[in-house]
Structures are given as structure tokens and as C-alpha cells.
Amino acid sequence: MTSSKVKEEKNMNTVYDTAVQDRTEENRTIEQTQAVFQAKDFNLWYGNNHALQNINLDFNENEISAIIGPSGCGKSTFIKSLNRMVELVPIVRTEGDIVYRDQSIFDKSYTVEDLRTKVGMVFQKPNPFPKSIYDNVAYGARVHGVRNKKVLDQVVEKSLKGAAIWDEVKDRLNDNAYGLSGGQQQRICIARALAIEPDVILMDEPTSALDPISTTKIEDLMHELKKDYSIVIVTHNMQQAARISDRTAFFYQGYVVEYDKTNVIFDKPKDQRTEDYVSGRFG
């Protein structure tokens, strides 16, 4: 797939979406054919705590979808459900379905390793491995059996360029990634996720541990990445969601209160709770 074609499809998609939106009042599920992820009546429990309740959401290709909401609303739990990382907590139980590219992620024939190879993740705190910058970025490819040194070199260079950090680190690829600043570490982590060319990138509050300058760099980067990847981002920072995302879902107490185009959510939300939250009255 060439990127120009992707753009074209995306534009058509947006036009179509707007049309749909005008016709229907209640449109949580926005558009079917181009969705990469679809949650269908998804429920999740931690033990007896019903953390996610009847989630129905579609995330579109080549868009940035933001999830906002107050602490404890289930937004992190939900994004971790998309690549099944949430199952690392032993007491988790789920019901309903999440479909990735027309296949249920809970399908028995589908291994979590396959899913996570296609759906990359960037975490809240920068979490590079205590290895060299090169080894960090090459990690995914090596784990999946790619050992050709020439290919790895290219992967590393391309990913670091893609994460807009190549110029800062190209002369010290063999230095330990722990020696970098927090913002640089986070971009190394993004490069590491890009290296296996995932289809979707999940970002769980990727800038919450960073200073404003690093945050701006990462937000700019996300705009670039949108051309080739679909991005789902959880953020507690409403301005960030407003700045970068195409669509925004507002989570509250385990429910999706409202999901719409970002400008709708921030300018004329339909639900009073959404309005209270985005205008800073609680949260």
C-alpha cells in the first residue's frame, strides 16, 4: 500500500463520516469498513470490580483516536485490552468481543504474540531496556527471528528516523539507552515500537512523564506517524487530545459517555458530563 493511496482513502473516509454524522444523532459506532478495531459490548472485571461496561467503539485506520476521562474511568484498562496486555493481571475476566481487522482478538487460533506484533504499544513511563540504543530498537525484529545484520541496521535507522530521534543518537547507537533524557527515552521506545512496523500503535499516556518541550516533539511526531499508522492514545491531558486527535472518546466510570469527532466533543458535546469534563469542571 503506497502512502498516497492511503491518504486518498482517508480523505474519502472523512467525507463519508461527516455525511453519516449529519444524518444520525446517536453515532457511537461511526463507520464500519475502515475500522481497525471494533469493541462490541465489551465488559471487563477485575475480580468483582466491573471496570469496563458495555463498551462499543470503533477506531479508524490512519486516524488518531484519543481516549480521555478522569482517573479510574477505565481508559488505561481499555487500551490494554486492545493488545490483551490487561490479561497480565491474573484476576481479569472479560465478556463481549474486540475485533481487530475482522478477526476477534480472543479467537483461539490467534496467539497474543501475533496480535502484539501487529498492535504495538508505547507506555506511560519511558521503559527502554537496559541495553544499547541499537539493541533496544532491534529487539522486536530479533525476537521475531530476523537476524540479518544488514536488515537490522536498516530497521534501526529507519525507525529512529521515524521517531525523529536519529540525528540526536546516530553517533552513539551503542550507548546505553538509560543515559538519554526522559523525552529521548520515550522516542526510543516509539522507535522500538515502529521497528516491527505494526499496523496500530497504542499509546498509554505517552507524555505524562515528560516535560513540555519533549511533549511537543512527541505530539509533532504523532502527526507524522498518522500517515502510516493508526494510533489510539489515552491521555489525561485534554488540550493534548484536542490538539492531536481526530476522534475522542470520553470515558466515565467504566462507560463510554460520548464518542465523536474531536471538535464536536470539545465544542458542542451532547452529554452534560462531557461538557463538564472538557470545560474543566471536574476530573
Partner: peptide
């Protein structure tokens, strides 16, 4: 895009992996 496709290489390697065992 570059001349190779890493996801394709990964899925080709997958068959040879005995990792499940």
C-alpha cells in the same frame, strides 16, 4: 517504504519457530 517488509519477514519466520513447544 523500503525494499523489505519486516512484518512479512516476521510472518515467514513464524512457521519455523518452535517457540510454542
Amino acid at each position: 517504504m523500503s525494499e523489505y517488509n519486516i512484518q512479512k519477514m516476521i510472518s515467514e519466520k513464524k512457521g519455523r519457530r518452535s517457540s510454542a513447544f
